[in-house]
Design a protein around this nucleic acid. Structure first.
Length: 949
DNA sequence: GCGGGAGGC
DNA sequence: AGTAAGGCCTCCCGCC
């Protein structure tokens, strides 16, 4: 018999978060109900988990009765400077009680006590009765209640963040505070809380507070130890504000012995009467939820898009709360309110400070704002800011021109606000924790604004939202999404600025036209955000978005801005050598061919080789031309055709020269003197990053000639480059995900994985069998076929098939994994990484064999490649903080190459940096995922990138 | 603007 | 019945 499990819902804090995270819905009476909707859906989800292992047997909602509590008598400033809740949130407070009553759930509040104290008291009482407790909240104060050290069968207390759908136990508390729950109060007392106006100690934030408590073991010990600390500002502050710290400790202490207004047993959850609930849902227009109760509720509107499938799930609630088979019964949302069509004539051009302030106030009042920046070039690192557009709701938008005109002596500079004054006013808004900034590819806007000292936080990015939901389904450009989701055609950039030679800078666009274009982008981003946020929340996928991609924006922006130093001299010397090599080879090739032709033209080359010279065995591609690819030329070379080798060499040198030694010189930024690549966070369907302008993820390394290019990537004077890469990460993940005991054991022991495979496949380990085994291992990751392996290994299809069969026999987990993955992809249409990142495969059930097989191979590869991408991204998100915590802020992460991170560090700090880098990377999967294989990280250092390997 | 070819993981 | 037959990318070039 499972024991009782009490869920305590922190209703007051939930509604604030729901308000900021959900679209501003209104009910048929025009009352805003976005937060109420979120709250209702959350209750639904919780009550729906009734029969599940971790689900509630008892449940109560706890609310703040009033803002007065014993804390006010301790400290009259407590919560004194809390801002008033936003206008459209206030009417939603009483509705929270209505919603709770509609579910016939107990709603507990008490004069003079805050919700936190009631929650603490119920938690303690339930624990004493031997119950488990889950606190539904993300309030950091409540983390003090999490059971410090769950042993065996003792009842436990954890927290559940329903918005992010994550449970937080002791580990999560550690991750956040660096100490166990029992010391959280001490940390909180030191750091203070500006929202609640808990004073703390001046100059002590979360980092220092954690460090002090870790070092001294408690607040009192830290205060006592201050006297013996070495003289510093911190020491002075600790001594001077010791009383404030002690007062703060009392303020954050939870009152655990409040009288319980309702006894524990009365909180039992055993069925929800449907009548009052349906009435409530219909009253507020939550139609699809109402429809799922059954009865005479009207069916959701036809064509409700993504909501429809969920709405047709039907009947869950009416049938005594049986959870559905797969357990993930996110309630369907009400149809989003119809917004008026986009009307560009309503946009405002902001040219006065009064108007600017009005927009800023509007953004603060509503709690979110969509932003977009316009520049005079695509280069975000040094491009000039031309204007900023804002939108706070469907139907509005403005453009603030800042850098128009002045480039053309004939045209006058239009009337506009001064840039410095405007940015000074926008700066606090863009950094305001209470105002969510929405945009499409905010990494670009962040880079542009960073030039002026502005930061953007917190943020939501519609590009990343779309990617989290629909990777593999379609592109994620703003215009494409507007067409797809809003049925709206955006003004194209080229309609405003033209193309080619006659293209003008955005700074030259007349203000009326610029306003239409720029404000439209902001409004479209805002409307998309409403839709996509909502879908993400319904369809799942928030975890990877919240924990990985969203925090990555700032990390990647910082890397791009840092850039990497490239030595022009080295490159131009290489270009010279390559020119000579090419001229020499060209002469020899022409002599051999009996006349000049364009070697770089595969068409001409094919004709020369197979028609003119009459070489045998060529094959033709679908264009009807002879194939002249590497394998074809290598075949000719083996047949003793000397021109083949020369052509191969010519191609290699030509590639290196045009793509790297020549092109990279042009990419050195005039202003910074460094090369700043641009990373796309949505460039690869699997979740990998991609790099462009220039692509720094394909700098040569395999050939000796190519490797010389790497030597041009150098550390700044006094610094060293550190290259850290995951060893065999994809094979390790395959071993874990497919659960292959031999492979896992080999990785655990640090054995050579290709040798092990060679032993298993061929019975002996030689240079030759090891090389073959390596090829097979990689082919497996890419979704093997006997044909592919045969051509790669230059053996017959039958031989290739025999090797594959033997591989599957030796490692049965691999073929099971492939089958499972494919079945999942066929049924659901997508695959998932260990962290829950989805990739869609719309062609997985195609009737076209080629398409289908291609999708199958991709589907086998995606979870492995994608999990690897998730892991290195998690490492990147944590890296700067970890380095800073270790006092290594001057160690800078510069590049990511899929399984490698490159850093630049002052010479004296290299030895200190390496263990930090290694630790962050090798533990990056944790705590979300515990791998059954170690993640080894190989680290090299050097004056240049070539030497660091 | 496409496709072949080649650089990386 | 026979074909084509390794995953994820970006960049350059010739050619249309």
């Amino acid at each position: 018999m499972a024991r009782n499990h009490l869920y305590l819902v922190d209703g007051s804090s939930y509604i604030f978060r729901a308000y900021h995270r959900l679209p501003p819905l209104t009910n048929p009476q025009g009352v805003p109900v976005g937060a109420v909707y979120g709250y209702t859906a959350m209750l639904w989800k919780l009550a729906d988990g009734l029969d599940k292992a971790e689900g509630p047997t008892h449940l109560a909602v706890i609310l703040d009765h009033s803002s007065q509590s014993f804390r006010n008598s301790l400290y009259d400033q407590y919560k004194a400077n809390r801002p008033e809740p936003p206008e459209d949130l206030r009417p939603q407070f009483p509705l929270i009680r209505d919603a709770t009553r509609a579910f016939s759930l107990p709603c507990i509040e008490m004069e003079g006590y805050e919700a936190d104290d009631l929650i603490a008291s119920y938690t303690v009482a339930a624990q004493a009765a031997g119950w488990d407790v889950t606190i539904v909240s993300s309030d950091k104060d409540l983390m003090q209640l999490v059971t410090p050290d769950p042993k065996g069968d003792e009842p436990h207390v954890d927290m559940l963040d329903t918005m992010k759908n994550v449970r937080m136990g002791r580990e999560a508390v550690f991750e956040k505070f660096g100490v166990g729950p029992e010391l959280v109060g001490d940390v909180l007392a030191l750091m203070g809380d500006s929202v609640d106006n808990v004073p703390g100690v001046r100059g002590v934030g979360p980092k220092t507070a954690t460090k002090l408590i870790q070092e001294y073991g408690s607040l009192e010990a830290a205060l006592a130890g201050a006297e013996t600390m070495k003289p510093s500002k911190l020491r002075d502050n600790l001594i001077e504000h010791a009383d404030m710290a002690r007062l703060s400790r009392q303020l954050v202490e939870l009152h655990r012995e409040c009288p319980l207004p309702q006894p524990l047993e009365e909180l039992r959850l055993d069925g929800i009467p449907t009548e009052p609930l349906r009435d409530f849902l219909l009253l507020h227009g939550f139609k699809s939820m109402a429809a799922r109760i059954g009865g005479d509720a009207p069916a959701p509107a036809a064509g409700a898009g993504p909501n429809r499938a969920a709405a047709m799930g039907g009947g869950v609630l009416g049938e005594a709360w049986q959870p559905k088979g797969n357990g993930s019964t996110a309630p369907a949302a009400p149809a989003l309110p119809e917004h008026p069509a986009i009307d560009r004539s309503r946009y405002e051009t902001v040219t006065t400070l009064d108007a600017l302030d009005r927009w800023i106030a509007e953004a603060r009042a509503i709690g979110h704002v969509a932003i977009d920046t316009e520049t005079d070039s695509l280069d975000a690192i040094t491009g000039g800011l031309v204007g900023v557009s804002l939108s706070t709701a469907p139907g509005n938008g403005c453009y603030i021109p800042l850098g128009h005109g002045g480039h053309d002596l004939l045209s006058e500079k239009p009337e506009q606000l001064p840039m410095d004054v405007t940015l000074a006013r926008l700066k606090p808004l863009f950094a305001d924790d209470a105002v969510l900034k929405i945009g499409h590819n905010l990494k670009y806007d962040m880079a542009v604004l960073a030039q002026h000292g502005l930061t953007i936080t917190p943020l939501d990015d519609t590009l990343l939202l779309s990617f989290a939901l629909d990777a593999g389904q379609h592109g994620h450009g703003l215009d494409e999404l507007a067409k797809l989701h809003l049925e709206h055609q955006c003004i194209a950039f080229k309609e405003v600025c033209g193309t080619g030679k006659s293209q003008i800078s955005f700074a030259e666009v007349p203000l009326d036209r610029a306003t239409e274009y720029a404000a439209e982008d902001a409004e479209v981003a805002l409307r998309l955000w409403m839709l996509l946020r909502h879908r993400l929340w319904q369809e799942g996928g928030t975890k990877v978005y919240e924990m990985v991609d969203r925090p990555l924006v700032a990390a990647v922006t910082a890397m791009e801005r840092r850039g990497i130093l490239v030595d022009r001299e080295t490159l131009s010397r290489l270009s010279g050598t390559f020119s000579q090599d090419m001229a020499r080879l060209e002469a020899a090739i022409h002599a051999e061919a009996g006349g000049p032709f364009t070697i770089g033209s595969p068409k001409q080359l094919g004709e020369v080789l197979f028609d003119k010279l009459g070489l045998k065995g060529g094959r033709k591609g679908k264009s009807g031309d002879w194939s002249t690819d590497q394998s074809e030329l290598e075949r000719l070379e083996r047949d003793g055709v000397p021109i083949a080798r020369m052509i191969l060499e010519w191609r290699q040198v030509a590639k290196l020269k045009s793509t790297y030694s020549d092109a990279l010189q042009d990419q050195i930024n005039r202003v910074t003197g460094r090369v700043h690549t641009s990373y796309s966070l949505v460039g690869a369907q699997t979740g990998r990053l991609s790099s462009t302008d220039p692509n720094l993820q394909n700098i040569p390394i395999r050939s000796e000639t190519g490797r010389q290019i790497r030597e041009a990537f150098v550390a700044a004077p006094g610094n060293v480059l550190i290259a850290a890469d995951y060893s065999q990460i994809e094979l390790r993940l395959a071993a874990h995900m497919a659960d292959v005991p031999q492979l896992k054991a080999a990785f655990a022991e640090g054995a050579d994985i290709h040798s092990l495979t060679a032993e298993e496949l061929f019975g002996e380990v030689t240079r030759d069998t090891r090389a073959k085994a390596k090829t097979v291992n990689f082919a497996i990751l890419y979704g093997i076929s006997r044909y592919g392996l045969a051509s790669r290994m230059e053996i017959s299809n039958d031989e290739a098939q025999a090797i594959i069969s033997r591989y599957f026999e030796r490692f049965p987990g691999i073929s099971d994994y492939m089958q499972r993955t494919l079945e999942g992809a066929r049924e659901r249409g997508y695959t998932e990484t260990l962290f829950g990142r989805k990739t869609w495969f719309p062609r997985i059930n195609s009737k076209n064999q080629g398409e289908r097989q291609g999708a199958e191979r991709a589907a086998i590869n995606a979870p492995i490649q994608g999990t690897s991408a998730d892991i290195i991204k998690r490492a990147m998100v944590r890296m700067d903080g970890a380095l800073a915590d270790a006092g290594l802020s001057s160690v800078r992460m510069l590049l990511q190459v899929h399984d490698e991170l490159v850093f630049e560090a002052p010479e004296g700090l290299v030895d200190a940096a390496i263990p930090v880098i290694r630790r962050v990377m090798s533990h990056a999967a944790e705590p979300a995922v515990t791998l059954s294989v170690p993640l080894d990280v190989e680290v090299g250092t050097g004056a240049n990138w070539g030497a660091a390997h």
